[in-house]
Computed example of a mutant assay.
Amino acid sequence: MKRPIQIIGSGAYTPQKCVISGEIDRRLEKPDGWTERTFGISQRFYASPSETTSQMGCFAAQSALDNAGILGSDLDCIMAACGVMEQPIPSTAVLIQNKLGLGESGIAAFDINSTCLSFITALDLAADAITLGRYEKVLVVSSEIASCGLDWNNPEAAAIFGDGAAAIIVEKSTNGSGIIASHMETYGVLQDVCRLESGGTRMRPEDDIDDFLDRAKFKMDGRSALSASLSHMPKFIDRLMAKAQLAIDEIDLVVPHQASGMSLTMMQRRFELSDSRIVNNFVDIGNQIAASIPNALDTALKAGRIKRGDKIMLVGTSAGISLGAIILEY
């Protein structure tokens, strides 16, 4: 059953500091051009100390509100869909709510985390809540600072990431827009392929501070992550399309997680997507964790690549390993 919701506004925020791949080459003591040739990324953006996760999320959220032509007080729910929170307690959504000037509003604010798939998961749950009449206007915002936890001893887990934020506003639709199908699968046997182990209850700094700090850096076996994701993706897409009762060639635009240059190239080849049917902005911003899908979506919307009635697939993978997707009629 199609869930009748529509996106009424979108926005994004890009940190001020642009880091070109030549700078990464020098940091890694590699030849000029090595990073761009190896990973397919020419630049990414890093947040300054003043550009916190919640501050960037606030900027993206305000941009989405302005785009929708509504006020923050018109919202009745704020979902922060971030792979890495600003702090454990209180939630990033609470911090964003307050920075939007809504700290005394009582508007529900909470986090939803499924790492790189957090935006898809939050949008899926927002659609349920709106369809059931629980909320009317929901802000879904993803904001990420990957640069603070990179392990430069592992270039493939460091060179591809960038920081940024993006947001959308959704409400009930009366014009045919809505979520046609959604699907998620998780293969926890691969839990160690991508991990950041400190910051929760597992690692305690009083036990071994050096170990705690080491595990505060993101660890990734990129080859295994890509192999696992690609091996599961074809059947995952088959099950998604069966739910939607659509064929892949009926999808007007695919908006994928910008995981890596290689993953995007292989997805495009596997599903025979022309350049006009896929959004690829990895070369310019890198992997922004959960913010990458809404950022790509906002880019496509602002470029006029999406019009009402188009069928859009939001799709990606995340640590877990998980695969997730939504097919929506815009």
Rank of each mutant, 00 (worst) to 15 (best):
Q6W: 01
I8F: 04
G9M: 05
S10G: 06
G11N: 08
A12Q: 11
T14K: 13
P15F: 04
P15T: 09
V19K: 13
I20K: 15
I20R: 15
I20V: 13
S21P: 12
S21F: 08
S21A: 14
E23A: 10
I24M: 12
K30H: 08
D32K: 12
D32H: 07
W34Y: 15
T35I: 15
E36M: 07
S42K: 15
R44M: 04
F45E: 10
A47I: 07
S48Q: 15
Q55D: 12
M56G: 12
A60M: 05
A60E: 10
L71P: 02
I78C: 08
M79Q: 11
A80L: 05
C82D: 11
G83W: 00
P90G: 10
T92H: 07
I96Y: 00
Q97P: 10
K99D: 14
L100H: 11
G101V: 06
G103K: 09
I107S: 08
A109K: 09
F110D: 08
D111E: 10
N113M: 04
S114W: 02
T115G: 04
L117R: 14
T121N: 14
A122I: 05
A122H: 12
D124E: 10
D124R: 13
D124I: 00
A126G: 14
I130F: 12
T131Q: 02
T131N: 15
Y135D: 00
K137H: 06
K137D: 00
K137V: 00
L139K: 04
V141I: 11
S142G: 11
S143V: 03
E144D: 12
A146H: 00
A146T: 10
S147I: 04
C148M: 06
F161Q: 11
D163C: 05
G164E: 09
A166R: 03
A166V: 02
A166D: 05
I168C: 06
I168P: 00
K172V: 00
S173T: 02
S177H: 08
I179Q: 07
M184V: 03
M184Y: 14
T186A: 14
G188N: 13
Q191P: 01
Q191F: 06
D192S: 15
R195G: 05
G200R: 07
G200K: 11
G200C: 06
R202K: 13
M203F: 11
P205W: 05
D210R: 15
D210H: 14
F212L: 01
D214K: 14
R215Q: 12
S224L: 11
L226K: 09
L226F: 13
H232D: 10
A242K: 13
A242P: 03
K243C: 02
K243N: 09
Q245E: 11
Q245H: 09
A247T: 10
A247N: 14
H257L: 01
H257M: 03
S260F: 03
G261I: 01
S263H: 06
L264N: 01
L264A: 08
T265N: 10
M266W: 07
M266F: 07
R269V: 01
R270N: 14
L273H: 14
R277M: 05
I278H: 15
V279L: 06
N281V: 13
F282W: 12
V283K: 15
D284P: 04
I285Y: 15
I285S: 12
N287L: 03
I289F: 10
I289E: 08
T299P: 03
I306E: 05
I306V: 10
D310A: 04
S318Y: 05
A325P: 08
E329P: 05
